[in-house]
Nucleic acid binder design. Sequence first.
DNA 1: ATTTTAAGTTACATTTTGTAATAGATACGA
DNA 2: TCGTATCTATTACAAAATGTAACTTAAAAT
Lengths: 202, 202
Amino acid sequence: MDEINKFKKILKLDRINLEIFRSLTKEGKINYSKIGKEHGVSHVSIKNRYENLIKRNIIKPNILVNFSKLDFKLAILLLELETEGYERVKDTYFNCPRIIYSFNIIGEYNHVLVFFAENLDMVETIFNSCMLNNLKGVRKSNILIFGSLSENLFLPLNFNQLDQQNENTPCGVCCKFCKSFIKGQCFGCPASKYYNGPLKIT
Amino acid sequence: MDEINKFKKILKLDRINLEIFRSLTKEGKINYSKIGKEHGVSHVSIKNRYENLIKRNIIKPNILVNFSKLDFKLAILLLELETEGYERVKDTYFNCPRIIYSFNIIGEYNHVLVFFAENLDMVETIFNSCMLNNLKGVRKSNILIFGSLSENLFLPLNFNQLDQQNENTPCGVCCKFCKSFIKGQCFGCPASKYYNGPLKIT
DNA sequence: ATTTTAAGTTACATTTTGTAATAGATACGA
DNA sequence: TCGTATCTATTACAAAATGTAACTTAAAAT
């Protein structure tokens, strides 16, 4: 019971909050007045609930992209890292626009990276040039490539990194000097000015 | 070049669309007028761009939940399924409120499920009672448990399934008859009327 | 017992949105 | 090449939603 009350202080799940969470996905917008009317409270109350949850960093509105519609490839990289490398991975890839998720796990591996590339060749290039070259202390690794994305697979994309005005990538290299980029095997990093793939900002 | 033009027809990335995508995360709302003013176009134009991308199923606004703030546990289940079971997994868990992601992969395993549970004991219970009991044709499985979620980890939660008014779970069982539930080892399925954990709607 | 905090209310001025009619540019088939 | 769709954009105005501030109530903390 204590576990439950503690949880409720963080995220109270009642019909009103549920409706707040749902409305954005259902209608693409949050309409304070409408939700308020439906639940017999004022629009200001809805606004406060919503904004407080965001301010307290409990929820985050976001735009997810349907990766099934793009012709992108996704991959999961399972890593067993030595202690030193372990801390560094998150730092290195914290702002990488290709990394969708990065988390520590317990078990056969201790870190997971989920990333995307523009096509299958690029998966290989990214894996070799961006990752293995950059990472130290990898004891073991395993790559799982996503198969056909038949259903709609919506994932977050780091739009904040797509400005494409920086000389260096967020992970600290420069595409200009990368073999794969020079040979034309790689579109480059979508966060750098050298990028020339489908995510190029027009 | 053709690859890039094909992509642009699906998702045109210019400064305006980028700003549309960013604004929701930055400000929690999409303000057509404001974005329009900033980019020298009318609010109607912004509205149309946004609504068309949603209607075409390219993007989906969503509320992500900060799992680092909740005391929930996350796990990745890697499965090697026989052809017959392969098709069934997606169907069975399509509406499961605990499943965050489900996708086909190529490699050592052919399917991945990412799910959450209220605590570590529940991970075990879900794995045994909900999954292994329900799945046929599993040749090999591997479970990876998430470690400490030090950073903020925002993931989507299926709020549409949290009504808690159904006798049966979306995967087709009834908690009332489940051993783990009867013994009090399990909060039950958050989609069913029997659920009594922290996600209980008040 | 008093203060603080959290959650909600009303009222009104301001801002945003929806809608409809319309225009220009591009794509495309006959 | 002509005409027809289609896509993207515009303006203008009525309708609706939002932001804000001052205030209320209840619960929690000191």
